[in-house]
Structure formats: C-alpha cells, structure tokens
Design a protein around this nucleic acid. Structure first.
Lengths: 233, 233
DNA sequence: TGTACATCAGTGAACGCGCGTTCACTGATGTAC
DNA sequence: TGTACATCAGTGAACGCGCGTTCACTGATGTAC
C-alpha cells in the first residue's frame, strides 16, 4: 500500500525527471550566453561552440534546445523584460508622487541594473545591434513597459489635464532616457562612487525636467512653446 | 624650361601619386565596412577577409591601413560625427527660435540620416554594442555634439535664466532622444510615409516638451516640481 | 511487481569551410645623382 | 635628362585553428503489459 501511494505521488512531485534535467541544461545555456555577453562579447558574435563550452555541455547538445543563437536571444529578451516591469511597478506604487517618487524609482532601477547587469548588457546592446527579429522583440518589450508606466501615471492622476497620447509620449521619453542611461551605468567601474552619484542625480533631474514639461504642456503645443519662451525671456 | 617648371608644379598638384592611391584604398575599405554594416551585419562581427572582399582588395592589403578592425571602427566614428555636427549647426542658425526651429532641425536631421544611413547604422549600433574603445570614442563624439548645441542655445539666448549646467542637461536630453530615435528611423521601410510622418511629429513634440520643461525649470528643482504638480492638478 | 521496449537528452567523431595572420614577392612610384 | 636604386601598396600562397552542422551512438528515464 505504501508503495502504491508512493508511485502516484512521485508522478505528481516530479512527473518528468527527464524534463527537469532538460530545463536545467537550457538554463545553463542561457546563463552561459549572458556570462559571455557580460564579458564584453557582442551577443551577435557569440557562437554555438562558445556558448556550449561555457555551459559545460557538448556543442551538439545546443540543438536539443534552440535551432540557432537567435532563438536563444529571444528567450533572453522574454526572461529579462518581465522582471524589470514588475519591479518598477512596485517601486512606483510604494512611493509618493513628485521628485521623491522619481528618485526612488531611479534608485530601484539602478540597483536592479547592477544586480542583473548581464541581462541588461544584452538588451541594450541588441536593441540597436542585433538581428532584426531581436530588435523587434526588444522594442515590443519596451513598448509594453511604456504602456504600463502610462497607465500607472494615469491611475496616480499626476497629469490630469493631459491626453492619453501626451501621457504616453512622456512615458516613452522617460523610458528612452532609461534605456540610454543603462549603457552608461553598465560601463561604470565600481571604484568611482562619486561619478555614479552624479550620473544618478543628472538622470533624476532630466526626468524631473521632462515631467515639468508635461505639467506645462498644452494640447495645442505650437502656440504654448512660443508663449512660454517669450514670457520667460 | 617648360619641363623644369612642369616638374615642381607636378610636385605641388599631386605630390604623392602613391599616397593618393593609398588613401583611395583606405576609403574603399571604410566604405566596404559601411556597406556590410548596412546590410545587417553587426560591425563587431565583421571580419578582415569579409571587408577586403567587399572592397575588392586582397585580405593582406588591410594591414597596410589598419592594425585590426577596431582601428577601422575608430576612423568611422571620426568621419561620421563631424559632418552631422556641421550640418545641424547650420540648421540651427538658419532658422528662428521656437517650435519651427525644432521642426526644421529635426527635418534636417532625418534627411541627413537617410542620406548617410550607413554611417549612422554603425554609430548607433556600436555606441552600446561595440568594443569598449569604440563605445568611448562614440560617447566622446556625442558629448562634443552636446556641448556645441548648448553653446548655440546659449548664444540664441532661448533660456536666459538657466545655468550652464541645466542648459547642458537639456541638450544632453535632446541628443539622447535623437540617438535613440535614430535606431527607429533606420528601421523604417520607405513604403510607410505615414508612419515616418508620425514618428517625426512625435519626436518634435517630445523635444518641445523637453524645452518646455527647461523653460519652467527653477534652479532649486525639488521645490518647483512639487509646486508645479500641485498647482496644475 | 518485474520485464521488455520506446524515447530522447546528451555524446563524440568527423566533415568541409572561412577565418586571421605570416611571408616572400612584384612592380609602380619616388628619390638621388 | 636619364640611370640606378629605394620604397612600399598590394599580391597570392600557405599555415593552423575554430567554426556550424551531420551522424550514429549511449544510457538513463518513461511506458505498457
């Protein structure tokens, strides 16, 4: 009786010891690619033999998981993007509007960047340099992210007067800054904490400036900018 | 006597037929690399044989001009950057302040982009994906560009109340947007003129928004943003 | 329960190929007298 | 002016090497009875 119950329970607990092992190898391959990219290689230049060597499996094992390196790249994009979205969403929700929220979000972002620098090196590199299919996948991920941010800002009611389009424009702007800053942060050496501090401060102020632009935006912009400029000068 | 004058004059007109020929080959190599990059390859992945084949010279001829592909990359960065700076500076000077200047500059930029898409594909790709030495060279070029723009804006006296630091921040912001937009413009297929129009319009409005933020910027920002937000909402 | 068979993730040898780099060379261009 | 020599951009053969991919394989895991 003990045996007869043990068998089905084993089926539930580890229904496919084989499948689990396979997934492990898959993860080893993904991790290996990330390690290599963080070592300075461009992902596009990575080879199957290089990756499998790093992963500690035989070259041909690669084909059990991916047809080619592009397919591995797509897996990387998916894994990387989701986590950050969840994280930053939390950051926005646990904070008050205004510059403090921005500074808080930026700090969350930068520390996340440093923790997951492997994934991010990959994403920022391939956004402009990868194969067309990878570029598109990354942009798709980025625009998901932008939309989420826009709907959060809408919920927070920070810019009640703005149209959805303008709100999305602001978010796209901030996300652009973020992606761009990523490259710079990733090239930071840890022995210059002062420089990092300055970069963060600059980054925060840029975002504040953008929000300021959003707060003063009139939906008929060509008039308002001229007004603003002539009023202030 | 004719001969004796002919010789020195020949020295002046073409002092080094050899050197000229060499320069021609050098340009052929550079152009070949650009062609290949525009064909979708990442520059980092380009090989010496690939480049020389495209250029129509024998592989070993490469070493007469560059020690390796990185050195060729540096040459590319220099050639590309300067031209755009000159062009955009002219665009800023032949136009009036306000949104029109922005729209005009953007149009100059986009049409330049399409004319020199080879160079730009290279610059935007390698800014985040190239070897460290290339990345640094490109950032250097970009910050030159930012500084130039800042000093132009200062001369135009558009933001009389802003500190130099804030002015430079604005310019850095705009340049970031520009670099980022480049990747998107380069992936445009010419059969969607409507999409291009929308992208340009969006781009212009983002810049206007940034300028608006700059016009409303107070040098003690943490106060002003909260003020703005509470005033407007 | 045990036995006999199927599946399939990972192995390891082998292939043809293009790579970067070396080397000795050729022949046009440049220089000295 | 012409001649004799130096320079050096580009050539072409050769090298050793790592690549992607194929193939038949092994042996642990899964399944049917």
């Amino acid at each position: 009786m003990l045996k007869s119950t043990a068998r089905p329970s084993k089926v539930v607990e580890e229904p496919q010891a084989r499948a689990r092992k396979k997934e492990q190898t898959r993860q080893k391959l993904i991790q290996a690619a990330l390690n290599l990219v963080s070592g300075g290689s461009s992902f596009t230049a990575l080879g199957i033999r290089e990756i499998t060597r790093e992963a500690g499996v035989v070259p041909t094992a690669f084909y059990r998981h991916f047809r080619n390196t592009d397919e591995l790249g797509l897996a990387l994009v998916e894994e990387g993007g989701m986590t950050l979205r969840r994280l930053l969403r939390e950051a926005r929700q646990t904070s008050l509007p205004g510059e403090d929220m921005i500074r808080h979000s930026v700090n969350v972002f930068v520390s996340y960047l440093q923790q997951h620098h492997l994934e991010w090196r990959f994403v920022t590199t391939e956004r402009s340099g990868g194969s067309k299919i990878l570029r598109m996948a990354i942009r798709n991920e980025v625009s998901h992210f932008t939309n989420e941010m826009a709907s959060d800002l809408r919920a927070l009611n920070i810019f009640p007067k703005l149209s959805t389009q303008s709100l999305q424009r602001i978010c796209a702007l901030v996300v652009t800054l973020m992606m761009y800053a990523t490259t710079d942060f990733l090239d930071l050496t840890p022995d210059h904490p002062k420089l990092e501090e300055e970069m963060i401060d600059n980054f925060v102020k840029q975002i504040v400036m953008v929000f300021l632009g959003g707060a003063n935006w009139e939906e008929e912009p060509s008039v308002s900018l001229s007004d603003e400029l002539s009023n202030k000068s």
